[in-house]
Structure formats: C-alpha cells, structure tokens
C-alpha cells in the first residue's frame, strides 16, 4: 500500500481541448510556458494571458485540476489539509491519504454501503462522493462517531448482540444505524430495516443488527 500513500507525480497533462484561452489557469500557463519560453517575452505573455483570463473567466466558476490541488476537509471535528485531484473520491482521500481505514470499500459503486460516512450527519456513500464535494461539509467517519476510545451506544450494542460476523460491513452498518438514531431516536424495526436496506451483509447478520440498534435506541432513551 505504501506506493499509494502520496498522490502520483507523473500525472498526464490535461488534454489540449480542456485548455481554452478562457479556461486557462495562471499556474497551468506558467507551467507550460516555463518549458518553452524565457525572458521578457514570457513576462509579457503572462500579463496578456492574465488580462484575457480575467476578462473571459465567467463569474462563479472555480477551476480545479486535473493536477493535484490543496484542500481542507473537516473530518470528525478536525481540519485536515491534503492534496487531491478532482477524481479523488472521499473514500480514497480517507483511506489512502489520511490512513483512516475504518471506512471500508467493497463494491466501489454505491451498491453495498460499506463505505458509509456522514456528510453533515446525512449518511452517504463515500466511494461515490468526490472528495472535492466534501469541502465545506462536516464529514464524520466510524473513527469519529464517539469520543476517544469510548464506544458509541450503537457500537456497544453491536458487541452485546454479536451483530457482526466477518465484520467488513460493520463500520458502514454502524454509521447507517447511528444516523437513524440521530434522526429518529425511537425507531421501529421497520425503520431500522429501511435505514440499512442499502448495507449489504454477506454473512446475513441482519436480525442481530436490528436487535442491536433497537437496544441502543432504548439505552439512549433511558439516558435522555
């Protein structure tokens, strides 16, 4: 895995069709011009291009990539600065770049929901969410669902009810069940079934997931 820890450096250049004069970026131009030109001609060229770019650049459009660019993601209450490409998914940013491997990737197509994280407390598939679309939102992962080493009530209930077998779907399952309790503290079994209807468990441990989530809801209600 170590070769995946840093973004690849040998990225292909953007296809020429993507770089129209209106869309050219200063960084992209300087990078290209640095190879082919030097001296005062370059300086003048930059100024001309800058003026044109400003005049032609539509308002309310921000250009990104295809090269890596810096962003800050708010994850589990903490700001993380990292470099991403436009194509980097949130799951890849979490697992490969930030080493937060609690979020699992199984299908990588939004079918199984093992990659479930919260965007502002709303459960989504991090494999089908571009990391850039998480900028400006609060991301919560399985690592941040509870404080320090304490278990979230849903996690504790999963342990009590033995609600996992191979465990690969469990982080996503817990995120879906905990999101349900955030929205609906008194769910019925039908509500739990609906909430995890996108979470595939190949071992078939659903009955215990339902029992654990209803138990966690009861525990939270008795504390409230």
């Amino acid at each position: 895995m170590s070769q995946h820890q840093t973004p690849p450096k040998d990225l292909p250049e953007a296809p020429s069709t993507a770089l129209t004069p209106a869309g050219i970026t200063r960084r992209g131009f300087l990078k290209g011009a640095g190879i082919t030109a030097a001296g005062t001609a370059l300086i003048e060229g930059v100024q001309v291009f800058q003026r044109e770019a400003v005049a032609a650049a539509p308002q309310n459009v921000k250009e990104f990539g295809p090269e890596p660019f810096p962003v800050t993601l708010q994850i589990n209450g903490k700001a993380h600065a990292l470099q991403i490409e436009p194509r980097t998914t949130l799951a890849e940013a979490l697992r490969i770049q930030l080493n937060m491997t609690g979020t699992k990737v199984s299908c990588d197509r939004g079918v199984c929901s093992s990659c479930t994280v919260w965007l502002d407390k709303m459960p989504v598939n991090s494999c089908m969410t571009l990391a850039i679309d998480a900028v400006g939102h609060h991301v919560t992962t399985i690592e941040g669902i509870s404080a320090a080493d304490e278990m979230h009530p849903v996690q504790a209930a999963f342990v009590r009810h033995d609600a996992l077998q191979c465990g690969f779907c469990t982080p996503g399952m817990v995120m879906s069940c905990a999101a349900l309790l955030e929205k609906n503290p008194h769910p019925t079994e039908a509500d739990v079934r609906y909430a995890v209807s996108g979470n595939l468990c190949r071992c078939g441990t659903y009955p215990k997931v339902f029992a654990a989530t209803l138990d966690a809801a009861g525990q939270l209600a008795s504390k409230a």
């Binding site: 990225l11 292909p12 953007a14 993507a18 869309g23 308002q59 309310n60 459009v61 921000k62 250009e63 990104f64 990539g65 295809p66 490409e85 436009p86 194509r87 571009l130 850039i132």
Partner: peptide, 10 residues
C-alpha cells in the same frame, strides 16, 4: 480517468 472540474455556483 484524470479530469478537470469547473465548480459552478450559479
């Protein structure tokens, strides 16, 4: 594939 992205607000 690698791509550029234009993020639009209007």
């Amino acid at each position: 594939n690698s791509f550029a992205l234009a993020d639009c607000s209007t």
